[in-house]
Every structure is written in structure tokens, then in C-alpha cells.
Amino acid sequence: MPTMADVARNAGVSVATVSHVLNGTRPVLPSTRQAVLDAVDALGYTPNTLARSLVTSRTRSIGLAVSAISNPYFTEILQGVEAAALAAGYSLLIADPHDDPAHERKVVQLLHERRVDGMIVAPSARPHDLVAYLGRHAVPAVFLDRVLPATEPVAGGTAPGQGLFDQVCAENAGPMADLTGHLAGLGHRRIGLVAGLPGLSTTEERIAGYRQGLAAAGLAFDQDLVVSGLSESAGAERATAALLALPAPPTALVTANNAMTIGALRTLRERNLAVPGGIALGCFDDFAWADLFSPRLTAIAQPSREIGARAVDVLLERLAEPGRPPRTVRLPCAFVHRTSCGCPELRDEAVGSPPAGTGGTTEPSTPLERGTAS
């Protein structure tokens, strides 16, 4: 097997120069760099990453702990993480915590034992042990999609939460307020919400946005119109059935993620309730086939791939500057206007181009979408 010394002899340079080219640790002349790369190709040289990690204490690997990888939303986030990591020369180790706090703590420890340089984690609804472990071992970490409160409850008191970690997520409250307000603007006075798993920041923020949308439309909040779908399809089927069983059922429905949209549609079909004729529908989370349904689904589109890529960028910045203060980065969503809300197609009134594969009209969903993000 060829060595770095063989590459150096073939290229006519020193071993140190080969190391600088392969590791990007010092600029070299373009002609020299090309000579080294040509020698690498000619000899079939493969860097010994294990040996390099023993010297540098870096493995150039990132651990990713994300639940429900089969969910299209997280699949797109994964694609964004993978592309950004690969572009930066990092490999990816992936684990599914299954939104179970005990399992979450276990898989994060296993990733840490694999000596990943840092981690990107979508925390569960009760991430107390996770936060304690990462803090105790000073693991560079970015929380993805779901953010932490300022403190986390632990035995005997509280522990620092978001103040310890970088976080990357989408805007939730503003876009949900826009979606709820849109339905209210169409004349709906009883708007049901199929909410997510209790305890997740995404759930709480989207409920807050729903309430904001009602208040802006002059509608009172009714707790009976909010039922948890537990962030999954089967739970949404039950939640939708419960809403339809109310003495005064909703005339419009908002689902708080794409998996719950599928569950809600299944229940509506079983009840022979046409959308939007029998009930209007708006969805938080767009997905590739949302425009293939009949009617086509009005949705809030999250920048999922961008969230994944940005999380990698933030983690690499953390690795380069460990003492930098933690920050939370929020990315804007887009309102994709289709027909399940009861509106006609608005293709001639498009404010912007829809995200790839969404097949609808997009509009800014929050002030951040209009370029005021910090």
C-alpha cells in the first residue's frame, strides 16, 4: 500500500507538503498542489485517518442523532447535513434516538465513544440526561430543529439549557400564525389544531403561533380545539377523530407536521369528509408529493436541507472557535398556497417561486422571510 512518502517522491515534494495539501493546513502553490493530487491518483494513495486522528486528536467525523429518519422532513435535513459535511471533508455517523430520552442518552454516548469531533442532535421532549452528558464531557454540539429552554429541570433544581449549546431551527410561531390567520380570513371561526408531541419546542411554538393567529383574527382560544397527534400519523388519526366528534366540530383544520397531515387525511377520508368542501386544511411542513393530493395541500414549507447544512456550518465554527458564545439560528419558512384551504390557484399572483418540488405559490410567512433575519 502506498505511503505519504511514496506520494512525496512521486510528486517531487516533501512529506510535509503532501500533508499540507491533503489536510489543508497551509496554502501551497497551485502547481504543487496539483502535482501532489496527481501523485495521489496515480499511486492510489488513501490517507490513514486513524493515524492522523492519533496525532491531531480529530477524526474529521460528525455524529448525527435524529429520530424518525424515515420522515421526509428529517430525510431532507439528513441530506443537507451529509452534503455540507462531505464538502468540508467530514464523514457522518448516524444514530436514531427514537425520541426516547434513555435511548437518546445511550446513542449519544456511543457516538462520543467513537471519538466524533462534534455532534448534531435533534433532542427529545425530555433531553435532561442528554444535556447533562454533553455538558459534563464538553462535547461540541449543535441542537437541530428543536431548541431548548433557557434551563433544563434536573433532580434537585435546574441545569443550563440553551445557554450551553448552539442551535439551528426554523421559525415556528410566525408561520403558524400566518397559516391560522389565513383560514380565519376565509371565514372559519372554529379552527382545530392537531398538535405535536408535548414537550417538544416545535410543538409549543406552533401552538403559540396558532393562538397568535386566532387573536389577530379576533377569535377566542378554545382548548377543546387543540388535540395532540403525538407528532405521528396514527396519533393524528385519533386526534382528528376527537376533533370531529366535538358537539361543534371545526370547519378548518391545521396539522402541525407532515406525518400528522397524512393521519388527518386518512381520518377525513374514512369519514367521507371532502377537503376543502367539508373541511378546510392547512399543514405545517411541506413535502414532495403535497401537490399531488386532490386538493393540493396548502402548507408551510420549512427549509429542511438548509437547516441541516447550516447546522454543520455552525458546528464547524464551534470546533474552530470553542470559546465563542453559543447562538440560536432561526431560518425563515415559506407559505405555499395551494387549494386545500379553499382558495383557488393563485399562480398568476405569485410573490416568489415555490421551493423545489412544492408546486405552489409561495409568500413570505414572517418578517424574517423578508430579509430582516439577524
Results as ranks from 00 to 15, higher is better:
19 S>R: 05
50 L>Y: 10
180 T>A: 14
314 V>I: 12
358 T>H: 14
256 A>M: 03
222 D>V: 11
334 A>N: 04
280 A>S: 07
94 I>L: 13
124 S>D: 08
36 V>G: 09
373 A>P: 01
339 T>D: 13
214 L>G: 10
306 E>Q: 15
71 N>V: 04
1 M>A: 15
21 V>N: 02
300 I>Q: 11
335 F>W: 02
345 E>T: 03
162 Q>E: 15
338 R>A: 02
353 S>Q: 15
300 I>V: 15
39 A>Q: 05
360 G>T: 11
19 S>G: 10
268 L>R: 00
136 R>I: 09
256 A>E: 03
121 V>M: 15
29 L>C: 03
347 R>G: 13
157 G>F: 02
49 T>G: 14
264 A>F: 02
160 P>Q: 05
66 V>F: 12
143 F>I: 03
63 G>Q: 06
22 L>G: 10
19 S>E: 09
180 T>K: 07
369 E>M: 14
366 T>W: 03
145 D>F: 01
237 E>Q: 15
7 V>R: 09
141 A>L: 13
135 G>S: 12
117 D>W: 08
3 T>G: 13
8 A>I: 02
52 R>H: 04
67 S>W: 06
47 P>L: 06
8 A>Q: 01
81 V>Y: 03
326 P>W: 14
344 P>T: 09
344 P>W: 05
374 S>C: 12
79 Q>L: 14
236 A>Q: 03
346 L>M: 11
291 D>N: 12
169 C>K: 14
161 G>K: 09
51 A>V: 07
235 G>M: 09
106 K>I: 09
126 R>G: 09
271 R>C: 13
26 R>V: 15
357 G>K: 05
156 G>A: 07
219 L>W: 13
259 A>L: 04
203 T>M: 12
275 V>D: 01
255 T>L: 09
95 A>E: 00
333 C>M: 00
56 T>G: 13
285 D>C: 14
17 T>D: 07
57 S>M: 11
252 A>L: 10
111 L>R: 01
338 R>Q: 00
195 A>R: 04
79 Q>C: 12
334 A>H: 11
